[in-house]
């Protein structure tokens, strides 16, 4: 095979905890194969060396929370041929989007000694609210195998195998006993997108919804069932308000049950 130029890959950070970028560094067994196939051109979390853009593939982590970042994301888009958002912050605004339900200026006044130093936006928003995104990889954090799958699909010019169906599909295929039906803790699996390999149900926990709403989700039916079976509205609100609180279907559902 002819030696091809290695695609230049950049990893960008916006408002986030860095956990999703770390998923790339967590690919310990595959790291050598990865750097064999791509050139890490910009990845401050891993190296200070910077190769100038434009970049073939950009992985974008984090949400937009400041006026500065709202500008910067356009620069990132301009210097990227194919842009993939990674993680709940980038795809839905993240846990920090909980502030979207309140007045952020009250937080700023309550937390900081000199609130006037803080320049922040009223809402934490997903990257796709600001720019065109080529592919979104869900999760809090993203799943390392899914990240490898997206990179591999990109490199081989094929469609990534990233299902948008429910966590239940993964759970059943794994042969787990459903916790919802056997009266375990509340589980968002039926309304949440697969991708984690049914991680929490594997450890007898309900799904926390880290991968955000699945395709055509129906949270209101699930809520109605829970209310009928004794769940409190406050608890429903808390269930939907976590890492993907501001993803539309989850946001609407929590707002429907507020106070």
């Amino acid at each position: 095979m002819a030696q091809k130029r290695k695609p230049k890959v950049a990893v960008w950070k916006f408002a986030s905890c860095d956990g999703c970028q770390l998923s790339l560094l967590d690919c310990e067994d595959e790291l050598l194969a990865i750097v064999e196939a791509i050139q890490i051109a910009y990845f401050p979390e891993a190296t200070r060396a910077v190769v100038r853009g434009p970049y073939d593939l950009s992985l974008v982590e984090g949400s937009i929370t400041t006026p500065h970042d709202a500008e910067r994301i356009h620069q990132v888009r301009r210097s990227s041929k194919f842009l993939v958002t990674i993680g709940a912050c980038a795809t839905a605004g993240g846990i920090q989007a909980l502030r979207n339900f309140k007045n952020v200026h009250e937080f700023v006044a309550g937390v900081y000694a000199t609130p006037s130093y803080i320049e922040t936006l009223a809402k934490s928003t997903a990257i796709a609210d600001h720019i065109f995104v080529d592919f979104q990889l869900r999760g809090c954090p993203i799943n390392k195998h899914q990240l490898l799958e997206v990179i591999s699909a990109y490199l081989n010019g094929r469609k990534p195998n990233i299902p948008t169906y429910s966590v239940c599909m993964e759970c059943k295929q794994k042969g787990l006993v459903c916790g919802l039906v056997t009266h375990g803790p509340p589980c968002l699996g039926p309304v949440t997108q697969a991708g984690c390999g049914a991680l929490c149900p594997s450890y007898h926990r309900g799904c926390f919804g880290c991968f955000g709403p699945k395709e055509t989700p129906n949270p209101s039916s699930l809520s109605e069932w829970w209310l009928k079976n004794g769940m409190k509205r406050d608890d429903l609100v808390r269930l939907y308000r976590s890492f993907n609180a501001y993803a539309d279907p989850f946001r609407k559902e929590s707002e429907a049950h507020e106070k």
Partner: peptide, 22 residues
């Protein structure tokens, strides 16, 4: 599925459902 450098590939069959969009 493929590996990163495209030297190995595999075809897998997986349970699906008429309830999924795809």
């Amino acid at each position: 599925v493929t590996n990163l450098d495209g030297t190995e590939a595999g075809r897998w069959r997986k349970w699906d459902s008429c309830f999924t969009l795809e």
